[in-house]
């Protein structure tokens, strides 16, 4: 009926990029299951899927009391050995009965939450995307956060991030319909995405949401670094020093749509037209590089006296 998910994105707390061979340890959250990795066009690793059982109120725009029982699917990913994401999603369907069934019934439907009673998809979607106070309602974000924390607790990480950054939160809902995408940038770290796609739901939709969250975080992080550099305010060496983490850590990670299923690629292209993620990224990257070039020239002039 409706799929909803929340992706949290942040910097892996480690001073250097983690090496390829370490991904297995850091993301190996399930015994007997390998971490899946791809190396082209960028190193990307994803943990096995994990389930979390819930029995709680579901969000509702009209504040209706809707009870859902079932499991969420969560996973953690690391991109470029640097960016960590925790992602959880759930497929909400109408249950066949109005009372709770034995747990084995729900475990036979991984990733599905059954609603006991009536529910309307627009009401549910509206409630979820409103970012209301967490309270007693289904909290996909905190489950995603938890999986990020579990990864960060790995003994292989030195817990020293190259720069300060906030975790961003992207809530998304997906339904079958005429393809379309609607992205809203919230005031603080919250973003929402409404997505409609052809055919049945597939994990490729989750890949798209995670990819979008990743690039939104990259833009947010780079913007913050540029703002903190106080270009024109601070001295040239200071500005250069403050911009350096962007060059070391972020600039090479921009690869929108790299792992997106071809059937969903047009949705990314829509977002590239408006708001134009890559356009803004490119202009920021040029600004960083121009600053470094100008500052290097100034430095050369000074040393050559």
């Amino acid at each position: 009926m409706l799929i909803m998910g929340e992706v949290r994105t942040g910097l892996l707390q480690n001073s250097a990029e983690i090496e390829e061979r370490d991904h297995q340890t850091v993301l190996g959250l399930l015994a007997g299951e390998r971490v899946r990795m791809s190396r082209r066009p960028i190193v990307y690793a994803v943990s096995p899927d994990l389930l979390t059982g819930v029995d709680c109120r579901l969000p509702s725009a009209s504040n209706a009391r809707i009870r859902g029982v079932g499991t969420l699917v969560s996973r953690a990913t690391i991109t470029g050995g640097r960016i960590l994401q925790g992602s959880s999603y759930v497929r909400v369907v109408r249950g066949e009965v109005n009372h709770r069934l034995p747990w084995s019934h729900y475990l036979a439907r991984p990733g599905v939450v059954e609603v006991l009673g009536k529910v309307s998809a627009p009401d549910l979607a509206g409630g979820f995307l409103a970012f209301g106070p967490p309270g007693e309602q289904l909290d996909l974000g905190s489950v995603s956060d938890r999986f990020m924390d579990v990864v960060q607790e790995s003994a292989l990480l030195d817990l020293r991030a190259p720069f300060r950054s906030d975790r961003t939160r992207l809530r998304w809902v997906a339904e079958t319909g005429e393809p379309g995408v609607h992205f809203i940038l919230g005031e603080s770290t919250g973003r929402t995405l409404r997505l409609t796609h052809h055919g049945e739901f597939s994990p490729a939709v989750v890949d798209l949401c995670e990819d979008l969250a990743l690039h939104d975080w990259l833009l947010t992080a780079l913007l913050t670094i540029v703002q903190r550099a106080r270009i024109g305010g601070a001295s040239r060496p200071e500005v250069s020093a403050r911009l350096a983490p962007a060059v070391d850590t972020l600039l090479h990670l921009w690869m929108p749509g790299a792992r997106i299923h071809p059937s969903l690629a047009p949705l990314w292209e829509n977002l590239e037209r408006t708001p134009g993620f890559s356009r803004q990224w490119q202009s920021l990257v040029e600004r960083v590089r121009d600053q470094l070039a100008v500052n290097t020239l100034a430095l050369l002039r000074e040393t050559n006296g």
């Binding site: 015994a31 979390t52 905190s142």
Partner: peptide, 22 residues
């Protein structure tokens, strides 16, 4: 192969009503 550990990792506890997160 530690089979018991394999199964333990796959336990998804039956959530009491009111379980809304981890």
């Amino acid at each position: 192969v530690k089979l018991a550990k394999l199964v333990e990792d796959r336990l998804v506890p039956d959530p009491p009503p009111g379980t809304h997160s981890w």
